[in-house]
Design a protein around this nucleic acid. Structure first.
Lengths: 112, 112
DNA sequence: TCGATGAATCGACGCTTGTCAATGTATGAT
DNA sequence: ATCATACATTGACAAGCGTCGATTCATCGA
C-alpha cells in the first residue's frame, strides 16, 4: 500500500534502455527480470488488468472475480507493489488500488 | 531451433489486446503469463539482449559472455523459442539465433 | 471500550524452475 | 569409417513460488 515502503522504483531514474539495442549487464538484468516476474503469473495479470480497466479498485472487489483466497490476493498485490506496477491507498477500512502507468511505460520501453 | 515445433505463436492471430483496457480472461492470462515468464530470468534477458543487439548470434558465442554451462544455455534458448521470442536456424554445425520482432511488439502492445 | 470487519503476516505444503554432470545425437573433418 | 565438435536431452538436486488455513494487526461502529 502507499504507506508501505515500496522498494521497486529506486530504479526509475535511468535504468534499462531498450533491451535490444545493446547487451544488458547483470545488474540491470536482475532488476528487469524481477519486474517481468511480477507479470509472469496469470492471477497477477488478471489482477492488474482488473485494476487498470476499472481505474481504481477496492480489495473487497478482487476476491470474487479472481477466485482466490484473501491471503493469496494480498500476496499478489504485494508482489505488484514491489515491482512498482500498482500502488494501494488505504481509505477507511479498505485499500484502493491503482496502476502506475509510468512504470508500465518504462517496462514497455525496454522491449524495443 | 527452427526445426523444432515452436508452440508459442499459435496465438499470433489476435490474442490479448491491451492489458489495461478490459479484464483478461483466464485463458489469455495463462498465455501472456508464460510469455512474460520467459522474460523473468536475468540470464534469458541477457541472452535475448545479446542476440538482439548483434542481429544474429551463434550459440558458440553465448556461453562465454553468459558464464553458464552449455546445457543451461540450451535450456534458456529453448524457453525463449517456446515463447516465440527467438528462432534458431541450424547452419552447418552451428545454430544461429535471431529475435522475432513481431512477437516482442505483440508483447509490448499488451502493456497498454 | 468492545466487538466486528478488512487486510497483512506466518507457517506449511506441493509444484515449478534454474543449474549442472553425464549422455545422446547430428554434422563436419581427416 | 572414424573421430572431433556443437548442440540437445536426461536425471538429479536445491531454491523459489503459489496457495491456503490460522493468526495477528488495524480501523470503524455501537
Amino acid at each position: 500500500m502507499a504507506t508501505r515502503t515500496a522498494r521497486a522504483p529506486e530504479t526509475t531514474d535511468g535504468c534499462c534502455g531498450p533491451l535490444l539495442a545493446e547487451p544488458l549487464d547483470e545488474a540491470h538484468a536482475d532488476e528487469l527480470a524481477s519486474q517481468f516476474a511480477a507479470l509472469a503469473d496469470p492471477v497477477r495479470l488478471r489482477l492488474l488488468s482488473l485494476i487498470a480497466s476499472a481505474g481504481e479498485v477496492c480489495s473487497c472487489d478482487l476476491q470474487e472475480p479472481l477466485g482466490k483466497s484473501q491471503p493469496t490476493i494480498s500476496h499478489h498485490t504485494r508482489v505488484l507493489v514491489e515491482a512498482g506496477l500498482i500502488v494501494g491507498e488505504k481509505r477507511g477500512r479498505w485499500v484502493w488500488w491503482r496502476v502506475v502507468p509510468a512504470e508500465l511505460d518504462r517496462l514497455r520501453a525496454t522491449l524495443r
